[in-house]
Design a protein around this nucleic acid. Structure first.
Lengths: 190, 190
DNA sequence: TGCCTACTTGGCACCGAGTGACAGGTAGGC
DNA sequence: GCCTACCTGTCACTCGGTGCCAAGTAGGCA
């Protein structure tokens, strides 16, 4: 019966996230130390690292889980659908669970864009997205080198998502993120 | 007359690079400490950080300089050339100065691919590439939102270069890197 | 020749992220 | 009521990176 513990663990994890993000927005990401976060939450510094591998992970959240959700949504698409349509639809389908935190805080998205160490970690996790999505996309490539082409399509789509996210953050949340994404993709496909 | 000093400085910088890369290949990047590098070169740990801002920079080399070279080559292309052709040609033109280290060591490229902290730094520098190239590419975009479209094209092209580089490294240096790049780009433009 | 100045270097102390090891406490099973 | 996990805090340590200061060295100038 690990459920009780798991619940406790999830709750504490949530509390760390909430407290840390508040501090980050107040003082800036780099200026906030793990000690301060731990103290604010009321746990030891060591325990913080038992819940989050790095300070960056608190901001980035469950990116790998969202990659898996997107992968499931992509796999659920008809096999004869072209990669671009399939990826776009899959992202929209899994958006409710995928973009929760994007909606939750504009400041966080801006911070991810402006803080080098966060950007770096984000790209590191993006690597995982590519690894998960590329084989699924490869099944939808009918001509040429499927692996190379799939990798290119996935990388391009993720880049377009990034661009859309950046424009959205820069607009203060007013820009239509899907429209910007479509515009970015249009640039690639004439 | 700073030339004498500059020469000295450049020579030492080269020596640090050479020594460090040898150690990296021998022991692995993470397992090699800055102290070991400094001691092997015969300088203090503090001086090392006066020549390289981070340990990663020793491996990555002058990526920003290469970005500037590529930007110059791109600007030299005819104004009416489409972005894809212009970028491809510009990369080939600046390749001799751009890909010196790629040719120099397959092990280094592999290390960049397999070491998380190096990958992260590389993407960080890639950000600079985007910032430099996007405005130049935007001038070649005739329809739609030029900024967004230029950002998308640049990001896609850089992603394709990455893919080609990865395939090249994985093949042990036998793959035709330009052919892989063309294949990747073909995936985006049908 | 001798001084002055600018620049470099090394050493020291320090900070912050992240890790391993150990001891103590607490909840659940028997 | 004990035993067994598991979680937690504490301590010590490594390593990357930075600020500061004193010492040294090369070149310019009188």
């Amino acid at each position: 019966m690990a459920t009780a513990w798991d619940r406790q663990r999830a709750a504490l994890r949530e509390e760390i996230t909430e407290t840390a993000r508040t501090l980050f927005v107040e003082k800036g990401f780099d200026a906030t130390t793990v000690d301060e976060i731990a103290q604010a939450v009321g746990i030891s510094r060591r325990s913080f690292f038992r819940y989050f591998g790095t300070k960056e992970d608190v901001v980035l959240g469950d990116l790998t889980g969202r990659a898996d959700a997107l992968a499931r949504a992509l796999a659920a698409r008809p096999a004869d659908e072209d990669p671009w349509t399939a990826l776009r639809t899959a992202m929209l389908d899994s958006r409710s669970e995928t973009f929760t935190d994007v909606r939750s805080d504009l400041a966080i998205t801006r911070m991810m864009r402006d803080t080098p160490s966060l950007r770096a970690r984000k790209f590191e996790k993006r690597q995982y997205w590519s690894e998960v999505l590329t084989p699924l996309v490869a099944e939808r490539i009918t001509e040429g080198d499927a692996t190379v082409r799939a990798a290119a399509v996935v990388a391009a789509v993720l880049a377009c998502v990034d661009i859309a996210s950046d424009v959205w953050a820069e607009s203060g949340g007013t820009a239509d993120i899907v429209a910007v994404y479509d515009e970015a993709v249009a640039a690639l496909r004439d």
